[in-house]
């Protein structure tokens, strides 16, 4: 395995390098791309590291809250502002890989990977995050929801860089992220993020997203519809469970069967809603 390794200091330098080397890939923490290179699942004549580009490593508390794509998972985990403003994202960082992986892995890499099991996606989806995609032609802004198009595919064009993730003033609702692996340190067999705004026992706003339960991280609008405007009682929860089991599109693989994943979606959803109703998590 041999490749050229480049470390530009600015974005424009990165674009120049990329356009001069067809097939080159960006690398951030490398925790995904290096594994895939070694396994021969991707090939790249050159790797262009984004690590030395300062502007990608910033966090702006805002509002709006702006997270540079190069912020590491460990930094997200340790940031005191985030713990207050986006606790559900911080929660998702805790079970992402191991300490060593979190130190290297970036939020941008997690999203650009476009893996269905990206742990940081569901929390950002329930907060209706947007992404800034930057290329030599300029910056475009998209909803994160529209960023993913399929397993390991996103709308990123060749040479385009995920610049930042933007979240509007954090919602007044409370959110939770639940993930289930085979052991604690594992890729999710299924994960669910839920954000609820309630008045009394009535849900006024619900955002539900899932990982590993569809070809990409997804918002689950049918489930949201069941919850929104409803009394959060046993019946609503049972209906929501049925909705999520219909709404997800899991696969069977060596990790779990589609059947189990579907069941898991319901189990995680129910637990998430009940925990939030009982005043847990923010």
């Amino acid at each position: 395995m041999s490749f050229e390794y480049l470390r530009p200091r600015t974005l424009s330098e990165a674009w120049d390098l990329a356009s001069a080397r067809p097939g080159a890939r960006f690398i951030a923490g490398g925790t995904d791309v290096m594994v895939r290179l070694r396994e021969g699942k991707v090939r790249a004549p050159a790797l262009i590291s984004l690590r030395a580009i300062r502007e990608l490593a910033q966090i702006e508390i805002g509002p709006p809250l702006l997270l540079g794509s190069g912020v590491s998972v460990s930094e997200l985990q340790a940031n005191p502002h985030l713990a207050r403003q986006l606790p559900v994202l911080v929660e998702a960082t805790r079970t992402l890989g191991s300490v060593q992986i979190r130190n290297a892995a970036t939020i941008g890499g997690n999203l650009c990977n476009a893996s269905p099991c990206a742990d940081l996606a569901p929390p950002l989806l329930v907060h209706e995050a947007r992404v800034h995609l930057a290329s030599a032609d300029g910056v475009r802004e998209l909803r994160l929801e529209d960023f993913f198009v399929g397993p390991r595919t996103s709308v990123l064009r060749p040479g385009e860089v995920l610049h930042a993730i933007v979240v509007d003033t954090p919602s007044t609702g409370r959110a939770i992220f639940l993930k289930k692996g085979r052991v604690q340190m594992d890729i999710a067999l299924g994960s669910v993020a839920v954000l609820l705004e309630t008045q009394g026992r009535t849900c006024v706003r619900a955002r539900v997203a899932a990982g590993s339960l569809a070809p990409m991280p997804v918002r689950l609008r049918d489930v949201e519809k069941v919850l929104e405007g409803a009394e959060l009682d046993d019946r609503t929860i049972a209906t929501a469970r049925q909705a999520i089991e219909r709404d997800v599109r899991p696969i069977s693989d060596v990790r779990a069967s589609a059947d189990y994943r579907r069941h898991l979606a319901g189990a995680l959803l129910e637990r998430a809603v009940r925990t939030l109703m009982n005043g847990g998590r923010r």
Binding site: R182, V183, Q184, M185, D186, I187, V254, R255
Partner: peptide, 23 residues
């Protein structure tokens, strides 16, 4: 170790899970 028609399907620690300190 999962196999299909003689081929090992989970030849990495990504998909062959042993207990860690958490378990």
């Amino acid at each position: 170790v999962k196999t299909k028609d003689g081929r090992v399907l989970n030849p990495t620690f990504t998909d062959y899970k042993i207990p860690t300190v958490h378990e």
